[in-house]
């Protein structure tokens, strides 16, 4: 059983943009308990995420996208290949910081909004004197300034997910993993949050690996898209999204790219069955 390799030295700035995550020929098998039947969940997946990039993995539900994120986050093991997460260039060498925004907010409901953010700051060993400024800064960034003392259950689903995003940004991660973070929200709230995420990206410049089954969402948000098919998960296409920001979901360039990718997707998926 292999585990995530953590490069402790900071990335050196080379001519090309430094890479934050390198996944090389990653594979994972799953054995049915007791049955002895083994099948491949992820087969030889390679991808890289450049520092400050927004990279999406798009694939049908249940294709193993979340498993891939869990492996990078270090909470699932894998069987072959390698995963390397490197700290941001220019920062002192440290354990790479991985933040994760899940489908549901996964907040600690008994702690205030501030308490939830301080929880991860404490977990990551951030010095106490930095807690208050970071809480204020990132809550303001997600549009929740003034909600510090409120409890999560008094907030709407969309606001709870904003807290989860603030929590993730607050540790100033080397890589921010997002697993369909807007899929549990109603269409209008999700749309608003996508816009706000775009805006946040301009300010915090995090490196993001985003997983979704929604091509429109991926095209709207990403710099780079990996398309994945299912059983086993395997990357069949890579797309560079060269559309200048700020973008609008209704822009014809975005809609055209989405349409062509959807067509491609269906031809690949149908080819399989």
């Amino acid at each position: 059983m292999a585990h995530v390799m953590l490069r402790k030295t900071a990335r050196t700035d080379t001519a090309s943009a430094p890479t934050a995550v390198i996944i090389d020929k990653l594979s994972k098998k799953f054995t049915v308990p007791g049955g002895g039947i083994t099948f491949t969940v992820i087969e030889s997946v390679s991808l890289t995420v450049g520092e400050g990039q927004f990279v999406s993995i798009v694939g049908p539900s249940g294709c193993g996208k979340s498993t891939l994120l869990n492996i990078i986050a270090g909470i699932e093991s894998y069987d072959g290949g390698s995963v390397t997460v490197a700290p941001r260039a220019g920062t002192a060498s440290h354990e790479p910081r991985v933040a994760y925004v899940f489908q549901s907010p996964r907040l600690l409901n008994w702690l205030t909004v501030q308490g939830n953010i301080e929880f991860v700051l404490e977990a990551q060993g951030v010095p106490r004197e930095q807690w208050q400024p970071r809480v204020t800064k990132y809550l303001q960034m997600v549009g929740l300034g003034g909600q510090e003392k409120n409890y999560p259950l008094n907030l709407s689903g969309g606001m709870q997910q904003r807290v989860a995003i603030a929590r993730a940004l607050a540790i100033e991660p080397d890589i921010l993993l997002m697993d369909e973070p807007f899929s549990h929200l109603d269409a209008i709230t999700a749309r608003k949050l996508r816009f706000d995420l775009m805006e946040i990206l301009g300010r915090a410049k995090p490196t993001i690996l985003f997983v979704t089954h929604d091509l429109a969402e991926a095209v709207f948000l990403s710099d780079h898209i990996y398309m994945m098919n299912t059983r086993p998960a395997r990357i069949f296409k890579e797309v560079e999204v060269d559309i200048p920001r700020p973008r609008k979901p209704e822009d014809s360039v975005i809609l055209d790219l989405e349409k062509s990718l959807v067509r491609e997707f269906f031809s690949v998926l149908e080819g399989k069955t």
């Binding site: 270090g74 933040a99 600690l108 991860v120 977990a123």
Partner: peptide
């Protein structure tokens, strides 16, 4: 799911007990 979240953010045992399990 909350225990998993705590692992991702690398909460140690004491912090996890105090803020995640006991509550």
């Amino acid at each position: 799911s909350l225990i998993e979240m705590s692992h991702v953010y690398r909460a140690d045992r004491a912090l996890m007990l105090r803020k995640v399990l006991i509550p």
